[in-house]
Design a protein around this nucleic acid. Structure first.
Length: 763
DNA sequence: TGTACAACCCTTTTT
DNA sequence: GGGTTGTACA
């Protein structure tokens, strides 16, 4: 009998799924139907009501953030009880299995994980050695072909046999070297993590048996986005106990370009004919209007299971459509609307998300937001861990952990410059391959040095001493101290300041400090030798959602892909133009077009209360793509036309820094009229259209007066706490200050003096 | 070897 | 716009 707390928190449908008996279960859970909730409560139910030991449960989520939230939720529900359960992404779970048993298939325990940047630099390197022209065979294209092969579980040898053209031939050749190099470097890439784990289970019955008997229950979220390897892994892991709990929504499948395939979700029944299916259609997130609008769009897809979501909440307000002259006006409209609503006190900044199709679209929004003082975060654009300085330090750490890691070695052997140039490197490489040693090992071989000319020897000596000193420190220092030591021993500080000036240098050093703080928070006083592997693993497997800083009252700028699984009271879906959303690369393929439509569906259903859809009649590639000021005329997205006109009102206003000036009549004065005729919206651009009012008319420049705050002053920020002003600058017509906050996890922030919620404590 | 500067690509989404 | 590559020179 299910306890009271379950009944209280779940509706009948959810309860039925959560408390279902053992056996294979598939839950079709529409957007906002409490999918993650059902998964979490299922685990809590298994732990408390069915007395399943936590260490016999594996739960797979889509992002680490989702895993973390699930753990927190479980903590509230059942306390520490859940701790031994395996909760994480497919990649994290596979890493764990490979660390434990990878030796059975010859994988060293201390393997490192190469991310896309590492992969790319390896491919480039191979091209160079093989004397292949990267213009003719672009490294990213080769890499993605290798990735596709791996997703299909095609080996280099198999690929070599099925090549049909010179490009594929090149790919096959590079692929072979690429795998060899990975092995030499004791490295695996993202695809290897999955594939190797699968191979291990397939080839080593004793390992398979261990996991199959250990895990009584396998639960997987977002099953519509698994690829073949992940699917096979799931089937295999559940083969013995057959307790499978899969949750997914075919309407939200948006990763087929990465090898995922919705059909796999429907194929589960082939493995488990007694599969029980539950369908959740009560939506707890959005208004009915939003759901209806989304449904009218998604129902155009032919390849889907028909289902319609019912809102638990009231009908709500219609969608608002804004037609902007160009992308700058689009951004201004969004900014002005946010200012209006925040001023009214109805919303805070963190209630808003600006969703777009491609990352490059964030720029115009960022520009207006900075100018008008709207605080924001960009989710996933340049991630923290992708910053050059952070990656440099990580490369040092990785090399310490695994001296065979060539990509890291090549990255830092002369960073900061220590006189090891191309000449030296090719000489060393020659000697290393002569001895058959990995580069990172050969460098430390004693008989290497005498064979070098004195000048080359000097640089190399410095590097050796540096690494030896750091390696000694592994056991005496904790991780944060090790990072500090790397910075000090390499004079990294001086290097960045010299290369990029004091201001940028400060910012870069602050990022490194944040890295150290993250290490400190995660591992405290543990010796670096112990914590290092886990630290490296954590940062290798981060998603944009994981890497984003979600603290603070900030507007989120985010791609539709990254927004999956999130929700916001107010959502702007922007750039609804043919060729952008849907993207031009999808226009000629009906299957891909359906995926674009699902992506739009995902974007719409992120919203709780209100949706704004916007498009620009001209998009300046000055901001979107490379720096020309050429403008292209755009067509309205077909997805807009698929929205039922009764649910949409067009609302044109003039965006200003003070908010939106409604035009022609205030939006509250008369009931807004629904868009009655799409052809009006579709009007071609005419040169006689009134120009948008310039929102940023030059006022008197604050830069001319004395600065109200001096460098060195201490300030208090509402969200970030107390900090010290490091620099003051007049940026356009706006005063900005650079503040180093005392809380090292906040670090350095650039703030608009007029707008940011700060008070000046002292000079 | 390191640096300064011109010339070239580029952008779809990401574990 | 920005990041990378190639060339000329200290």
């Amino acid at each position: 009998m299910e306890p009271e707390w379950l009944r209280r928190e779940l509706d009948d449908n959810q309860l039925e799924a959560v408390t279902a008996d053992d056996g294979p279960i598939l839950v079709f859970a529409g957007a906002g139907s409490g999918k993650t909730r059902v998964l979490t409560y299922r685990i809590a139910y298994l732990l408390t009501c069915r007395n399943v030991p936590a260490h016999r449960i594996m739960a797979v989520t889509f992002t680490n953030k989702a895993a973390k939230e699930m753990r927190q939720r479980l903590e509230q529900l059942v306390g520490n009880l859940f701790q031994p359960a395996w909760v994480g992404t497919f990649h994290a779970v596979c890493t764990r299995m490979l660390r434990l048993h990878g030796h059975s298939i010859g994988l060293p325990k201390d393997f490192v994980i190469y991310d896309e940047e590492d992969q790319l630099s390896l491919v480039k390197r191979i091209l160079k050695e093989k004397d292949i022209d990267p213009n003719q065979f672009p490294p990213p294209a080769i890499l993605s072909a290798i990735g596709a092969a791996k997703e299909q579980q095609v080996t280099p040898e198999e690929l070599a046999e099925i090549v049909e053209n010179p490009f594929q031939e090149t790919v096959a050749k590079v692929y072979r070297d690429y795998q060899t190099r990975l092995q030499e470097a004791k490295a695996v890439d993202f695809d290897d993590l999955l594939w190797l784990a699968l191979r291990m289970l397939e080839e080593k019955p004793e390992v398979a048996d261990y996991y199959q008997s250990r895990f009584l229950h396998i639960l997987v979220d977002e099953y519509q986005d698994v690829n073949r390897t992940q699917h096979q892994l799931t089937m295999l892991l559940a083969a013995q106990h057959r307790n499978l709990f899969l949750v997914g929504d075919d309407d939200q499948s948006i990763y087929s370009w990465r090898g995922s395939d919705v059909r796999l979700m429907l194929e589960v029944r082939n493995h488990f004919p007694d599969l029980r299916v539950f369908v959740l259609t009560n939506n707890y997130r959005s208004t009915q209007v939003i759901l209806d609008a989304a449904w009218y769009v998604i129902k155009r897809n032919i390849h889907r299971q028909e289902k319609r979501l019912r809102a638990v909440r009231p009908a709500g307000e219609p969608l608002i459509l804004f037609r902007a002259q160009d992308d700058r006006e689009e951004a201004a409209f969004v900014a002005a609307t946010i200012i209006d609503l925040v001023k009214q006190g109805a919303n805070r900044y963190s209630d808003f998300a600006v969703i777009y199709r491609i990352n490059a679209q964030s720029r115009p929004f960022e520009e207006v937001f900075v100018r008008w003082g709207i605080p924001y975060r960009v989710v996933g654009a340049l991630r923290f861990y992708e910053r050059k300085e952070v990656r440099d330090i990580i490369a040092y750490l990785r090399l310490l952990f695994n001296p065979a890691d060539q990509v890291s070695l090549l990255r830092i052997i002369n960073t900061p410059p220590r006189g090891i140039g191309e000449q030296t490197m090719s000489r060393i490489q020659e000697l290393a391959s002569l001895k058959g040693l990995p580069l990172g090992v050969a460098i430390f071989a004693d008989d290497l040095l005498p064979s070098l000319p004195p000048r080359q020897r000097g640089g190399l000596m410095r590097f050796r001493q540096l690494m030896e000193r750091l390696r000694q420190g592994l056991n005496e220092w904790k991780l944060s101290e090790l990072i500090q030591a790397i910075v000090e021993l390499t004079d990294y500080d001086e290097y960045v300041r010299k290369a990029e000036g004091d201001l940028v240098g400060q910012e870069r050093m602050s990022n490194i400090l944040q890295l150290a703080t993250a290490a400190e928070q995660a591992f405290g006083d543990e010796p670096a030798a112990q914590s290092l592997p886990r630290f490296l693993e954590q940062i290798a497997l981060l998603s944009p959602q994981d890497a984003a800083d979600w603290r603070g009252d900030l507007v989120s700028l985010i791609t539709a892909h990254s927004a999956k699984g999130l929700e916001f009271p107010i959502v702007f879906v922007t750039g609804l133009e043919e060729g952008l959303f849907p993207h031009s690369r999808s226009l000629d393929d009906p299957f891909q077009l359906e995926e674009e439509r699902r992506l739009f569906y995902v974007a719409l259903t992120r919203a709780k209360d209100r949706v704004y859809v916007t498009y620009a009649q001209r998009r300046g590639f000055s901001t979107g793509r490379w720096g020309e000021s050429r403008f292209a005329l755009t067509d309205l997205s077909r997805f807009l036309l698929e929205l039922p006109s009764a649910l949409v009102v067009e609302w044109r206003g003039v965006p200003t820094a003070q908010g939106l000036i409604p035009m022609p009549s205030p939006p509250t004065a008369a009931p807004r009229t629904p868009v009655s005729d799409w052809s009006k919206v579709l009007q071609p651009v005419s040169p006689s259209l009134p120009q948008p009012i310039r929102a940023s008319e030059p006022g008197q420049s604050p830069a001319q007066g004395p600065f109200p705050v001096k460098t060195g002053a201490r300030v208090r920020h509402r969200d970030f706490g107390i900090g010290k002003v490091i620099a003051v600058a007049a940026d356009r017509r706006l005063l900005t200050i650079l503040v180093q906050f005392d809380d090292p996890s906040v670090g350095l922030k650039r703030l608009a003096l007029d707008m940011a919620p700060i008070e000046i404590l002292s000079d």
